[in-house]
Amino acid sequence: MQPRKILRTRIQQGDIAVLALELAAQRANGTISTTALKKFLIDKFKPTEGDAIPTANGYTPLFDQIVGNLVSNRKTPTSMFAKGYASYTGHGIQITQAGRDFLKTVPR
């Protein structure tokens, strides 16, 4: 039996967590605002029409919610915050030493 092909029509939250840590690590103070993160991710991923679908509130694009969920789901046991890789500053993400150490283990 051949493995099933996964067809993706939109970006997933897990796709951007490591990138968010990398972007924070590249900053002098190790912090990136959520606004700057969204802008960079839009430029990088070029969200498709699947990412532009409005959420339940009727006007927020799904992609914006996915990026926002990085922060709003920070208490989820598998989040980069719960694992100690980053902290939330109130306006953005600050990478921790544990986050920098984690990035060294991520395959390039």
Rank of each mutant, 00 (worst) to 15 (best):
Lys83Ala: 03
Ile93Tyr: 01
Gln26Asp: 13
Lys44Tyr: 13
Ala36Glu: 02
Thr55Lys: 12
Ala20Met: 04
Gln26Ser: 15
Lys83Glu: 12
Gly68Thr: 02
Leu62Thr: 13
Leu7Asn: 15
Arg4Lys: 13
Phe40Cys: 10
Phe63Ile: 03
Pro3Thr: 12
Pro54Asp: 14
Lys38Asp: 09
Val18Pro: 08
Lys75Glu: 15
Arg10Gln: 13
Thr48Trp: 08
Phe45Ser: 13
Leu37Arg: 01
Ala17Thr: 07
Asn29Leu: 07
Gln97Ser: 14
Leu41Pro: 04
Ser33Lys: 04
Thr55Ile: 06
Met1Arg: 13
Phe45Glu: 14
Lys46Glu: 10
Phe102Glu: 05
Gln13Ile: 15
Gly99Pro: 00
Arg108Glu: 13
Asp101Tyr: 05
Arg74Met: 06
Glu49Ala: 12
Ala86Trp: 01
Val67Lys: 01
Ile93Thr: 01
Lys46Ala: 08
Ile32Ala: 01
Ala86Lys: 00
Arg100Met: 09
Tyr59Gln: 07
Thr78His: 10
Arg27Thr: 13
Arg27Ser: 11
Asn57Gln: 10
Thr34Phe: 06
Arg108Ser: 14
Ala20Trp: 00
Arg27Trp: 08
Leu41Gly: 05
Met80His: 06
Pro107Ile: 12
Thr60Phe: 01
Lys38Trp: 04
Ala86Val: 00
Leu7Cys: 11
Arg100Thr: 06
Ile16Asn: 02
Arg10Val: 05
Ala36Gly: 07
Pro107Val: 10
Lys38Glu: 11
Phe63Ser: 00
Gly84Thr: 02
Ile53Cys: 02
Asn29Pro: 08
Asp101Trp: 03
Lys75Cys: 09
Thr55Pro: 05
Leu37Lys: 00
Ile53Gly: 06
Thr60Met: 04
Leu7Ala: 09
Ile32Ser: 02
Thr89Phe: 00
Val67Gly: 01
Met80Asn: 03
Asn69Lys: 12
Lys38Val: 10
Val71His: 08
Asn29Arg: 11
Ala82Gln: 14
Thr78Arg: 12
Ala20Ser: 02
Ala25Leu: 12
Ile93Met: 03
Asn69Met: 08
Thr76Gln: 14
Pro47Trp: 07
Lys44Trp: 12
Pro107Trp: 10
